[in-house]
């Protein structure tokens, strides 16, 4: 019993050190821009950089668009699969997991090959087209998380009976989707959305190869040319990711409280 606890604690401490030490080191380093004392100078420089603001807001915009597209894609699909094609669920699930297996670099080369300027649909020829392509790519990357989140949300409600109840009251598909299904999986959608947000903000490969001014390539650029600023950037983006995770926790906790007696 005692020995057990010793090993459990050792494992935990080892894990904490393994994860926390580089973080602490990086954070500490990011404060050392001014010689001989700790300061927020690196952060000040980063936040004042117009490129930081431009790329960051660009990525945020794309993240929001990605979330919208992803929701429009996954919610009706997951709903329909649960309602009418339960036998196809494993297949759909497998498909949504593919982005975890196929590297983004393959996806982006596929895109470039399919949509280059000499193709039938020359999306890469215009800025809007390339942006659209980037959103589409991000949506693919978000699929595994988004689909799972939505599917889990749907599991909590009796999709079939609620649909039939709504139908018997005269509702059509659009009403059922927007008034009943979406509101009931909103919490799940939100947790998927925060994950998607975190992914899009930090994504590098797609944005770099499609040559769009996103936050990921900007971080890489700074990292290659400066000393202290990249550390500050990393801390910032890490903070964003953690904030997203925290929001997921919060939203889930909140929804559990309101549905406690179900």
């Amino acid at each position: 019993m005692k020995g057990n606890r010793f090993w459990a604690w050792s494992a935990l401490i080892f894990g904490l050190i393994y994860f926390a030490l580089p973080l602490i080191g990086m954070t500490e380093f990011s404060f050392r821009m001014r010689r001989g004392e700790y300061s927020f100078d690196a952060y000040r420089v980063v936040l004042a950089d117009p490129n930081f603001r431009a790329t960051f807001s660009y990525s945020v915009t794309l993240a929001v668009l990605t979330i919208i597209l992803s929701v429009c894609l996954t919610v009706p699909t997951a709903y329909w699969v649960r309602l009418r094609m339960p036998r196809w669920r494993p297949v759909i699930e497998f498909v949504t997991l593919l982005p975890l297996v196929v590297p983004p670099i393959v996806i982006v080369f596929g895109y470039i090959r399919l949509y280059n300027t000499s193709s039938l649909l020359p999306l890469t020829g215009t800025i809007t087209g390339t942006n659209a392509l980037l959103v589409a790519g991000y949506t693919v990357l978000s699929l595994p998380y988004m689909y799972r989140a939505v599917d889990t949300g749907l599991r909590a409600i009796d999709v079939q009976t609620l649909t039939e109840a709504a139908q018997s009251l005269g509702a059509g598909w659009f009403t059922i989707m927007t008034r009943i299904i979406l509101p009931n999986v909103l919490v799940a959608v939100l947790s998927g959305a925060f994950l998607t947000f975190a992914i899009v903000i930090g994504e590098f490969v797609l944005a770099a190869l499609l040559n769009r001014p996103a936050f990921g390539p900007y971080m890489q650029l700074i990292g290659a040319n400066r000393a202290y600023e990249p550390a500050a950037l990393a801390v910032i983006s890490f903070g964003i990711t953690w904030a997203c995770m925290g929001l997921i926790q919060l939203v889930t906790r909140f929804s559990q409280a309101t549905r406690a007696s179900r």
């Binding site: 409600i157 009796d158 009976t161 609620l162 039939e164 109840a165 709504a166 139908q167 018997s168 009251l169 005269g170 509702a171 059509g172 008034r179 009943i180 509101p183 009931n184 549905r259 179900r262």
Partner: peptide, 20 residues
């Protein structure tokens, strides 16, 4: 006719109230 055009009311064993 589709269910939503039949002008019926239905009560289910599992209540099926809209939770939201």
């Amino acid at each position: 006719l589709r269910p939503n055009a039949r002008d019926i009311g239905m009560v289910f064993q599992a209540y099926a109230l809209f939770p939201n």
